[in-house]
Design a protein around this nucleic acid. Structure first.
Length: 484
RNA sequence: GGCGCGUUCGUCUAGCGGCCUAGGACGUCGCCCUCUCAAGGCGAAGAUCACGGGUUCAAAUCCCGUACGCGCCA
């Protein structure tokens, strides 16, 4: 029997969920789902200064919006559920302390009394002598008597983990293969702070083991810490999980994606009108691909095809242009009724939800192939519900053209008489008008469009007029003519 | 500074020694469709596979070095 796959996403609640974190979450989730395993969420809030409750909420909201469900972890910002509860690290401190005591008792970790100033000095001298600036192990071999004396002086201490002094630690990474680190170049890392609390690397090892993680999929920036973590697993008599380190996501200028490149928070993408499915698909492709070079995936497709081996070792640039294309694809695939529901917040904000006028369903369907973002929908359809606002250029070029006024007035009369006021008869009547007056199509079609919408671009003309209805069309033709 | 990682069209990538005169997707450009804008169809341009050495009958693919970028130690 094979062990059940268990993956996790373990954010520090010190801010919103950014794009990189979202991708890490997605890959962990995909891997777990692919193998019918469990996906766990754990909150690494041991940084008491920077962790906030708001961040926890924002992160949970983000993961939920992305449509990634977790099997164990927080239910909200305070409570959680699952066989390994609690999933908030601050609530697990006694657990960490237990293993800390064990390591100290076994001589695998030791108290270090060096002050910040002393450590700075070590570092300075090391830099000067062009040696690696690592902790020199000053307190590593202190005797019990020496420790007593230092403590009698009221010296505070941190606790350091004793790294082996020879040999190498191999990280067998699912994406990068075997990566070797010389042990004597690693330093004795602090696992318990002077301020009496555990450090990130220590909690991470203990939780990943106790919570039964089989795979740790995380960002590239953790690769260098992995040998230390692996040695802690060994010291505790545990087998490390399989690691996979994902490459970084870059901004368009090749530097690490940050706020100055635009939106970095997942919730900002939601607010700009991207669909969760777009984010899942796009992020999946940013650093992972299969041999078919497939671009569009259903969720089932993604789950059945995703694998760690297909992940890219090199960093990837986040490309909003492709994201927009993909979002357009998925909007086009979304049935209009569903699309309206998705666009509801944006329509409400624009005052178009429940507005008097043509049926929203027909209006939105009219320009279905044009939306790239949900947030664009209101601007593209608002002229159906709000007074016409003329684009100055369109007004100059199209309405002020010679004869345009006569066209508008003539059409207003002709269309007033038209029944039924529907696409086909409208087209027939307007084309007839063109012939009667000896004009070209453009000389008539363009002025109608600008007069009724204020713009030179918009939906297919005759169906649009039908949806607007006779009263609106005729009065707008007259109004526009009146301005000339 | 040390250690580690990375480097294929503008961007995301395929490629695991011969199928590569390097394939796909986004974007760009052109044509078609057409009442505009899109969408759609067709087509084109775009990569001396970072650079330099090897290994081999044969290298984008294997090995070594260099450069540049990034990460960790901080």
């Amino acid at each position: 029997m094979t062990t059940k796959i268990r993956t996790r996403f373990a954010p520090s609640p010190t801010g919103f969920l950014h794009i990189g974190g979202a991708r890490t979450t997605l890959y962990n989730w995909l891997y777990a789902r692919r193998h019918k395993g469990d996906f766990i969420l754990r909150i690494e809030d041991t940084d008491e200064v920077r962790s906030t409750d708001d961040s926890v909420t924002a992160i949970l909201d983000s993961v939920k919006w992305l449509g990634l469900d977790w099997d164990e972890g927080p239910k909200d910002g305070k409570t959680d559920t699952g066989p390994y509860s609690p999933y908030f690290q601050m609530q697990r401190v006694p657990v960490y302390r237990k293993y800390l005591d064990q390591l100290v008792a076994e001589g695998k970790a030791y108290r270090c009394y060096c002050t910040k100033d002393e450590l700075d000095e070590f570092r300075r001298v090391a830099q000067l002598e062009k040696r690696p600036p690592r902790y020199p192990g000053k307190c590593r071999a202190l005797s019990a008597a020496q420790r007593q004396e230092l403590e009698a002086q009221g010296k505070k201490f941190s606790i350091r983990f004793k790294m082996p002094v020879d040999g190498a630690t191999i990280v067998d990474d699912a994406i990068r293969g075997k990566v070797s680190f010389e042990n004597n170049l690693q330093q004795d890392l602090v696992i318990w702070k002077t301020t009496d609390g555990p450090t990130y690397n220590f909690c991470c090892v203990i939780d990943d083991h106790l919570m039964g993680m089989t795979h740790v999929v995380r960002g590239d920036e953790h690769l260098s810490n992995t040998p230390s973590q692996i040695q802690i697993y060994y010291a505790l008599g545990w087998t490390p999980p399989k690691f996979a380190h994902l490459s970084m996501i870059l901004g368009p200028d090749g530097s690490k994606l940050s706020k100055r490149h635009g939106a970095t928070s997942v919730l900002e993408y939601r607010d700009q009108g991207y669909l969760p499915h777009t984010m899942r698909n796009y992020l999946a492709l940013l650093g992972w691909s299969n041999t078919e070079s497939q671009q569009l995936f259903t969720d089932e497709d993604l789950i059945s095809k995703f694998d760690l081996e297909g992940c890219q070792k090199s960093p990837a640039t986040f490309d909003t242009v492709k994201l927009n294309w993909m979002n357009g694809e998925y909007i086009r695939q979304t049935p209009v009724k569903e699309l309206i529901e998705l666009a509801k917040p944006f329509l409400e904000k624009a005052g178009l939800w429940g507005a008097k006028g043509p049926a929203l369903e027909r209006v939105i369907a009219l320009e279905h192939e044009k939306y790239k973002l949900l947030s664009e929908i209101p601007t593209l359809i608002e002229f159906f519900y709000k007074p016409v606002v003329f684009d100055p250029k369109a007004f100059e070029k199209v309405l002020k053209a010679p004869g345009a006024k006569d066209v508008l007035l003539g059409l207003a009369d002709a269309l007033q008489e038209l029944t039924p006021f529907e696409e086909k008869p409208l087209e027939a009547r307007i084309r007839q008008f063109v012939t009667e007056k000896g004009l070209k199509n453009g000389q008539v079609f363009h002025p109608i469009r600008v007069a009724t919408t204020g713009r030179t671009e918009g939906p297919t003309l005759f169906l649009m007029l039908e949806i607007m209805g006779k009263d609106m069309v005729v009065s707008r033709l007259k109004d526009a003519a009146g301005k000339l």
